[in-house]
């Protein structure tokens, strides 16, 4: 019924697609940062896309299986995945036998990968989601990351064996060099032309986490006196403090904030924020609202399972 954690990885947490409908009381969304990859892993296992997964950041865990199970690994490209001594692939159904050890290591590019299981991880429900919210220790496994030697329990699910959905794209590259945004409500405070923005490189800071992706390097020019009343914010809102270094809010983002909201990442690109790797470059590209709608339609064609979100 269980798996044992032999190695934890840098920051491995239980996530589903997050908690909705409680943002007005200050509850962040949480959930898989790259929800597209997480949903894809479940879709390949033919499981509901909201099923809990393990989100792994930069390095992943080693897990010992106490029973037969299927898993699927998606998201950032992992250097090496092994089942006992044989190497295994991403984006496909993997069979684990009782006693087998699944090992993952460093990611080669991007940042987060996801492990989905043929059964449901047993974790703490909080407001209709088992997603781990680390700052307040809510949801997940005791509200925190998986621990060495921990036993993770699973709930029995209806179907015994999973039949993978072969219609799902395999091995598609995750490109984070361009993040498409629409103008935010305080865009007018930016002292920059759109061509200046097109040529402006941003570097992902090491100080980034699930609450926000910070940037370092070239500063933007912003006219703000820092006296704004706190305004509504969401994952994908780009705030620009007076230091001119924008912060892209993440899946655990707070619900109100006082820095100018210069951009909002378009829905079709929001999953990419979770894959922005520290010390890599990216650019923002301004899009119109109608382009943003078109982009979502394109994404939906490529990933039909995402419609349920």
């Amino acid at each position: 019924m269980t798996i044992q954690v032999l190695e934890t990885g840098l920051q491995t947490t239980v996530q589903d697609l997050g908690r909705m409908g409680s943002r007005h009381i200050g509850i962040p969304q949480s959930g898989s940062f790259d929800y597209l990859s997480a949903a894809k892993a479940n879709a390949i296992l033919n499981r509901p896309i909201n099923s809990p997964v393990l989100e792994c950041t930069m390095t992943g865990p080693s897990l010992k299986f106490m029973k037969d199970m299927q898993v699927c690994i998606t998201g950032a490209k992992v250097n090496q995945i092994t089942i006992d001594d044989s190497s295994a692939d991403q984006d496909t159904l993997l069979h684990l036998n009782k006693g087998s050890i699944l090992s993952t290591d460093l990611v080669k590019e991007n940042l987060r990968f996801y492990i989905a299981f043929s059964e449901s991880i047993q974790a703490t429900q909080f407001l209709n989601s088992v997603s781990t919210y680390l700052p307040a220790k809510l949801g997940g496994l005791n509200g925190t990351t998986i621990q060495k030697d921990q036993i993770i329990d699973f709930k029995k699910t209806q179907s015994e064996e999973c039949v993978g959905d072969s219609s799902i794209h395999m091995g598609k590259k995750i490109l984070t060099s361009t993040i498409r945004v629409v103008e935010g409500p305080e865009f007018h405070l930016l002292d920059m032309t759109s061509s200046e923005l097109d040529d402006h490189d941003f570097v992902v800071s090491n100080d980034s986490n699930r609450m926000g992706v910070r940037t370092v390097g070239n500063q933007m020019s912003i006219n703000d006196k820092g006296s704004m009343i706190s305004k509504p914010i969401y994952p994908g809102t780009v705030q620009c403090p007076q230091d001119g270094l924008p912060i892209i809010l993440g899946t655990d983002a707070q619900t109100l904030g006082g820095y100018p909201r210069i951009f909002q990442v378009i829905k079709a690109d929001r999953h990419l924020i979770g894959q922005l790797r520290p010390n890599t470059n990216f650019r923002f590209k301004l899009a119109s609202i109608s382009k943003a709608i078109d982009a979502w339609e394109v994404l939906k064609k490529d990933y039909p399972f995402i419609c349920e979100l």
Binding site: M20, G21, R23, H24, Q29, I229, S230, K231, P232, I233, Y234, T255, L256, K267, I293, W296, L309
Partner: peptide
Amino acid sequence: NDIEVIASEEMISVRSKVIP
């Protein structure tokens, strides 16, 4: 049930799960 809402001092913000 297809929206997320935030009430701030100056405004209400609504985010829709459905696009458009």
